[in-house]
């Protein structure tokens, strides 16, 4: 059983000048699941993602991915191992077109990234795959649009397409549907469900119907600590969880 845990943390802790943002978190994400990380604002969810991908160095604790210790690895190397994150604040390359955004990701795995003597036209060979990915997130009509001109929801969709281009074994999605219109939320949820068929997803999400719909297991974080863990039914009935959400003004 233990060996189908793909990502595991032990005593993960992050302090910011005395303030403990993440405290002694033990997280186990099983391969092939959609695992949701929820909690009130400021609970430490994004900080957790930053620790897992080493965009922040943990104060204490250990992280293992695919049985390998990655606690001290550099962010780019963690991505190369197959653990790829998205950002809460949509992260695109603003002055590259939608097609180019996805191609930058494809380029990383398919080589030529250091070739300074070749024409960028060699990248056209990636267009086919890039367009498939763009179509999958409903951006087909925007292939040549600079990312900066996309509405917010579509930027998020582009970000997911870019992440998917790496075919990561595990994706960390930080609020993938935040700020999206209802239709977009449905399309992106369906997409996440589809792409999760052969990979693992850990996602932070505030939209509880998306959480209910998608996740196999939920970890609730409050004030940096794990408050509860289980499926949607058990977690939504947990008194501590209800308290934590009430306390922070969430319904």
């Amino acid at each position: 059983m233990a060996d189908d845990v793909i990502l595991e943390t032990e005593g993960l802790t992050k302090e910011f000048r005395g303030f403990v943002a993440v405290k002694d978190v033990r997280l186990r994400v099983r391969r092939g699941t959609i695992h949701a990380l929820i909690g009130p604002n400021g609970a430490g969810k994004t900080t957790c993602f930053n620790l897992l991908t080493h965009f922040l160095a943990p104060t204490r604790g250990r992280i293992r991915f695919k049985g390998r210790e990655i606690t001290g690895s550099r962010p780019a190397d963690i991505a190369r191992l197959g653990l790829v994150r998205s950002f809460q604040i949509s992260a695109v390359f603003p002055h590259l077109s939608v097609l180019e955004n996805v191609r930058v990701a494809l380029q990383r795995t398919r080589g030529a990234s250091f070739d300074f003597w070749r024409s960028e036209r060699v990248l056209d060979g990636l267009n086919g795959r890039a367009v498939e990915l763009i179509e999958a997130v409903g951006l087909a009509a925007f292939a040549r649009t600079p990312a900066v001109e996309l509405p917010y929801g579509r930027k998020r969709a582009l970000e997911i397409a870019t992440t998917l281009a790496l075919e990561p074994e595990m994706m960390l999605l930080d609020e993938p549907t935040a700020g999206m219109a209802h239709d977009d939320v449905e399309r992106i949820s369906a997409l996440i469900k589809r792409v999760a068929a052969n990979r693992t997803v850990l996602m932070v999400e505030h939209n509880l119907s998306v959480v209910e719909n998608l996740s196999d297991i939920i970890t609730v974080l409050a004030r940096g600590e794990v408050l509860a863990e289980g499926d949607y039914r058990s977690v939504s009935r947990n008194q501590d969880v209800i308290q934590a959400y009430m306390g922070s003004g969430h319904a």
């Binding site: 991505a79 390359f93 603003p94 002055h95 990701a105 990383r108 990234s113």
Partner: peptide, 13 residues
């Protein structure tokens, strides 16, 4: 354009 994003895609900037 966006160094953290490039790094998160696995580029050693």
């Amino acid at each position: 354009e966006n160094e953290p994003r490039a790094v998160s895609l696995g580029y050693r900037a």
